[in-house]
């Protein structure tokens, strides 16, 4: 399937992602930040679809917008947000930190501008109908060991989260 109106959707989704990301880090109420972050994640899922990665886009929606954001919202409800809303949002070094991050961004843009000639200008042609099968085969053949290690990591994370969040007995 050939994509239609690619530049329009690219600019729409990327502007949505960047604006929601800025909203995420500037709101006083953490619930508003979480909602804005969901918009960023959904816009990124759309960008993955435009890059012919439908499996990654689906995993992005299920895992991030469905799983991690529910975790965030639960924790926001468990901690006291009324007190946090009255406090100052940014810490004392915010100006220095923003300048440092902006100079890092300038460096990144400079590197991209100077170095974008070294990667190929043409895209590989992947049929998107075979994307999921290919990822599955790769995961169970070439990447079997990292896959198992990832399951072990998730088990350790579950046990660690439960131990840390439970009441002292």
């Amino acid at each position: 399937m050939t994509p239609v109106a690619t530049p329009f959707f690219f600019y729409f989704l990327s502007i949505l992602a960047v604006v929601s990301a800025i909203v995420t880090i500037t709101r006083r109420n953490p619930v508003h930040s979480a909602l804005a972050l969901i918009f960023t994640l959904l816009a990124l899922a759309g960008l993955y679809l435009m890059l012919y990665a439908p499996f990654v886009a689906a995993v992005q929606i299920v895992l991030y917008a469905g799983g991690i954001m529910v975790l965030f919202l639960f924790v926001i409800m468990l901690v006291n947000i009324e007190k946090a809303e009255l406090e100052e949002r940014f810490n004392k070094q915010w100006l220095v930190a923003t300048l440092a991050a902006a100079s890092l961004g300038g460096l990144l843009l400079f590197v991209l501008r100077r170095g974008h000639g070294i990667f190929p200008a043409t895209f590989q042609n992947f049929p998107e109908g075979e994307n999921t099968q290919k990822i599955g085969l790769q995961l169970y053949q070439n990447y079997l060991m990292p896959f198992e290690i990832a399951s072990l990591l998730l088990l350790v994370a579950i046990v660690g989260a439960v131990v840390m969040a439970k009441k002292r007995v």
Partner: peptide, 14 residues
């Protein structure tokens, strides 16, 4: 751009 926004958030929020 998203990376830089995230870095600014980590460094400046309380």
């Amino acid at each position: 751009a998203l990376f830089i926004i995230g870095v600014i958030g980590v460094l400046t929020r309380r």
